[in-house]
């Protein structure tokens, strides 16, 4: 019993030391990490939205959706006029989760899309991040396209040897546009 307590005390001392070291490192690095995340978010938003002169994050709203959970909508305005809304979309590709940011204009058409994070195969599926693939979605609305790859009767070019990744993006865009249509009322009146 005494030995047990002694070993316990030694372990406690070691892990207390490691906890102190870690909390110090955490407090030093946290602000830097957070600041860059915010900056990156704003950059991504400005890439997919039409020109705006407000702060889309500050004027954004969070809407709960039964399929997507809580979604943050970042609202872009120019001279008080609503120009577009940006939000994150998620889809499942070949290598797991693909995260994208979509920019939609008030008439429900896609203005811009950017892939933020993915684990697709390098050199094949990873081409979903290239503008030459993503450009084809711009200006599309939910009813103005057949949402599939050309090979199976859809409207969209696929990346060769990466049909699963291409389809995943197509599905992600479609679901994003649907989400916008469903919550259009609440977003536009904000």
């Amino acid at each position: 019993m005494r030995e047990f307590l002694k070993l316990l005390a030694i372990l406690l001392v070691f892990f207390a030391g490691s906890a102190i070291t870690l909390s110090y490192t955490y407090t030093k690095t946290k602000p830097i990490i957070e600041e860059r995340k915010q900056k990156k978010k704003l950059e991504a938003i400005s890439e997919v939205l039409p020109p705006f002169d407000n702060d889309p994050v500050k004027e954004g709203i969070v809407i709960w959706d039964e399929k997507h959970g809580n979604v943050e909508f970042y609202i872009g305005k120019k001279g008080k006029v609503f120009t577009g809304v940006a939000f994150l979309g998620e889809t499942t590709g070949y290598g797991g989760k693909v995260t994208m940011i979509l920019g939609v204009t008030p008439d429900g058409k896609l203005h811009g899309i950017k892939i933020i994070d993915h684990n697709e195969t390098i050199g094949l599926g990873s081409k979903i991040t290239e503008p030459s693939f993503l450009r084809q979605f711009n200006g599309r609305g939910i009813d103005s396209a057949k949402w599939d790859v050309k090979k199976t009767g859809g409207d969209f070019d696929e990346i060769s040897s990466a049909t699963i990744s291409s389809r995943a993006v197509i599905k992600g865009v479609r679901e994003g546009l649907e989400l916008f249509e469903k919550n259009k009322g609440r977003i536009l009146t904000n």
Binding site: L7, I10, F14, S18, T25, Y26, I32, I33
Partner: peptide, 25 residues
């Protein structure tokens, strides 16, 4: 008797420091 948990504790402390620093810088 308790060297392995202590080794792993020390190693994981350094790994977490590395992880945070790489993420920040």
């Amino acid at each position: 008797k308790i060297r392995l948990p202590i080794f792993i504790g020390i190693i994981s402390t350094f790994v977490t420091i590395t992880d945070l620093c790489i993420e920040a810088y």
